[in-house]
Nucleic acid binder design. Structure first.
Lengths: 110, 110
DNA sequence: TTGAATACCTTGCAACACAAAGTACTAATT
DNA sequence: AATTAGTACTTTGTGTTGCAAGGTATTCAA
C-alpha cells in the first residue's frame, strides 16, 4: 500500500506538474514526448498516463492550443503552444509557487 | 466551476500540507487548532475539514502519537507529537521538497 | 438557560497522479 | 508480404488528497 519515498514525491508533484508544463511551453512549443523528456532531465519523473490527460485538460481550459505536424520518424506529433490565457495562468502560478516556498521557509525557520 | 487563483493554490498545497504539519510538530507538540493558527500565520490558508483527517491519517501511519489534555477554556485538547517514524518520514520529505524546488528552478532557468 | 467561544469529527465531492492497457503510424528486419 | 521495434497519442479504473458543509461536545459568561 505504500512505497514511502516514492509516494512522498508523487504526492508533492500534485498541482506542481501543471505549473512545470506551462513553464516549459512558455519558452517554446513542444509535443508530449518531448515534454516528458525535459521533465525527466530536470529530475521530475512522470509517466505518459499523467501528462497526456493533463495536456488535454489544459487545452480544454483554453490555456493551450495545438497543431499537428508530420514526423519522418513515426506518427504525427501534436505540438502544444501556450495561449494568452495560459500566460495569465502561469503568472498566477508563479505567485502561488513563490508563496508556498516562502511559507515553508517561514515554518522551518521558526 | 473554477476560482482560478484559489484553485491554483489549492492544487499546489496537495502533498505539501502533510510536510508542513510534520515540520510544525517536529519543533513542539501541538493540537489541531493551534496548528491551524500557525499555518494561517505562515500564509498557508487551510480549513478544519482538511487538517483533522490529515492528522488522523498521519497518526494511523504511525508518524504521530497524541495525548489528551484538559483545558481551562473549553473542551479537552488532543496534543499531537511526532514519532521516530515521523522524523524519518520528515527527512524524506525534506529531500523530496528540495528536489522539487530544484526541478522548478532548472526548468525556469532554461 | 441561552449563547458564544473553543475544539474535535464526519460525509460527500471534485481534482489529480498513476498503473495498465490499447490504438495507430513508420521503418527496418525477416 | 509479414513481422518486429520504435515512436506517439489515448483511455479506463483506482487511490489519495483538499474542501465545503454540517455535526457533536465542553466551558463560561450573560
Amino acid at each position: 500500500m505504500e512505497n514511502s519515498a516514492e509516494n512522498v514525491r508523487s504526492q508533492m508533484r500534485k498541482g506542481v506538474l501543471e505549473y512545470c508544463i506551462l513553464s516549459i511551453l512558455d519558452k517554446k512549443e513542444a509535443y508530449a514526448s518531448s515534454i516528458l523528456d525535459e521533465l525527466k532531465s530536470a529530475n521530475m519523473i512522470v509517466v505518459e498516463g499523467t501528462v497526456y490527460p493533463l495536456l488535454i485538460r489544459q487545452k480544454n481550459q483554453g490555456l493551450l492550443s495545438y497543431r499537428w505536424e508530420e514526423s519522418t520518424q513515426g506518427p504525427p506529433r501534436k505540438y502544444y503552444c501556450i495561449t494568452e490565457k495560459g500566460r495569465q495562468q502561469l503568472g498566477e502560478m508563479d505567485a502561488a509557487w513563490q508563496e508556498i516556498v516562502d511559507t515553508i521557509k517561514t515554518i522551518k525557520e521558526r
